[in-house]
Amino acid sequence: MPIKIPDDLPASRVLEQEGVMVMRETDAVRQDIRPLKIGLLNLMPNKINTETQLARLTGATPLQVELTLVRISNHIPRNTSADHMATFYRPWEEVRTERFDGFIITGAPVEKLAFEDVTYWDELRRVFDWTHTHVHRSFNICWAAQAAVHHFHGMGKYELPEKLFGIFRHRNLAPASPFMRGFSDDIAIPVSRWTEVRREDIPADSGLEILADSREAGLCLLHDHRHRALQMFNHLEYDTGTLADEYLRDAATPEGSRLPRNYFPGDDPKQRPVNIWRSHAHLLFGNWINEMYQTTPFEMGRIGRHS
């Protein structure tokens, strides 16, 4: 099945060129099935790229998915046009009465700030609590994952001496988990962050299960059973060139930028990187959507009302 997104969303053209089936509204209503309803709260600066990356992954399964783009209600993005936001995004205050099979919250460029100093922290805390009652399964990425384990479990984040940046090998610690089904023992995952959360801070009674970690990069993926959420601290959704774009952006600043590790062939930024994580990205999102499909109530009104 295809993914149902607004006809004029820039991601539509990109995904169609890649062979991903994109469903129009008129076609969707003719199918006598209930699509999986997934919301995307996009906090990333380059919203169009992030929309495309996550629509690609959620639209690659055999199930029909309806993607709703959501924004923080009172926050005005600086890097995306007001027309784009007004046309394709709905404020969370508008969708909070609705229920979703799945809800994704992305990272944000606010890692070095204390959580409480982020301008939209109070609303994001309400969003986290709302996912526990109005969402069947959540998927939080990078800073949003750090924020979620801080909000729900009181875990802190720690600033690193330098940016953790590149492709790092990770261990599959829970091959029996439905979310890790089909994963290799050794997984290459893009990492791009200034902070980390630590294993020793996981509360003993939290129900948090470590699914993947790295000896170099630390915690990567947690399953929060109690809140029906995956907490992904890294970026399997990244395109082949995303780290290169970040490197060039940072290199133009006074602070400069170190080369991303294990990324450019021969550490030569003129060489095109080789994508060795794409298959695992599709596998993780496919497993998440399959688990959601297998367990979500058919009646939307029952979502969030059962354990």
Results as ranks from 00 to 15, higher is better:
residue 301 G to E: 13
residue 234 N to V: 03
residue 97 T to W: 05
residue 42 N to I: 04
residue 233 F to H: 08
residue 58 T to C: 14
residue 57 L to Q: 05
residue 139 F to K: 06
residue 54 L to P: 03
residue 188 A to T: 01
residue 291 E to W: 09
residue 23 M to I: 15
residue 14 V to H: 12
residue 183 F to Y: 14
residue 83 D to R: 14
residue 141 I to Y: 01
residue 18 E to K: 15
residue 84 H to E: 12
residue 286 G to C: 01
residue 88 F to L: 09
residue 203 P to I: 00
residue 151 H to M: 01
residue 115 F to E: 06
residue 15 L to T: 11
residue 167 I to W: 07
residue 147 A to I: 02
residue 178 P to Q: 08
residue 218 G to R: 04
residue 204 A to S: 12
residue 59 G to P: 03
residue 274 V to F: 05
residue 153 H to Q: 06
residue 99 R to Q: 14
residue 235 H to W: 04
residue 143 W to A: 06
residue 165 F to M: 03
residue 20 V to H: 14
residue 38 I to G: 04
residue 53 Q to M: 09
residue 128 F to L: 09
residue 277 W to F: 04
residue 84 H to N: 07
residue 32 D to R: 15
residue 302 R to T: 07
residue 263 Y to V: 00
residue 297 P to V: 02
residue 280 H to Y: 13
residue 62 P to S: 09
residue 160 L to Y: 09
residue 66 E to L: 10
residue 188 A to M: 10
residue 44 M to H: 04
residue 129 D to M: 11
residue 81 S to N: 10
residue 117 D to L: 06
residue 215 R to W: 00
residue 297 P to D: 07
residue 200 E to Y: 11
residue 119 T to E: 15
residue 52 T to P: 07
residue 231 Q to V: 04
residue 191 V to M: 06
residue 199 R to Y: 01
residue 118 V to D: 01
residue 114 A to S: 13
residue 306 H to G: 13
residue 54 L to H: 13
residue 285 F to M: 13
residue 13 R to Y: 14
residue 222 L to K: 02
residue 250 D to V: 01
residue 243 L to T: 03
residue 148 A to Q: 13
residue 80 T to E: 11
residue 160 L to W: 10
residue 14 V to P: 08
residue 291 E to D: 14
residue 27 D to Y: 10
residue 58 T to W: 14
residue 285 F to V: 12
residue 142 C to F: 00
residue 273 P to L: 14
residue 14 V to F: 02
residue 213 D to G: 04
residue 250 D to S: 07
residue 302 R to P: 05
residue 176 A to D: 15
residue 64 Q to A: 10
residue 247 Y to D: 10
residue 291 E to A: 05
residue 77 P to M: 04
residue 287 N to E: 07
residue 214 S to E: 07
residue 100 F to T: 09
residue 69 L to D: 07
residue 182 G to R: 08
residue 199 R to A: 11
residue 91 P to F: 10
residue 73 S to Q: 05
residue 49 N to C: 05
residue 149 V to K: 00
residue 255 E to L: 09
residue 170 H to S: 13
residue 223 H to K: 08
residue 77 P to Q: 05
residue 82 A to T: 15
residue 101 D to V: 07
residue 83 D to T: 15
residue 93 E to R: 11
residue 196 E to C: 12
residue 231 Q to A: 06
residue 280 H to L: 02
residue 184 S to L: 04
residue 211 L to M: 03
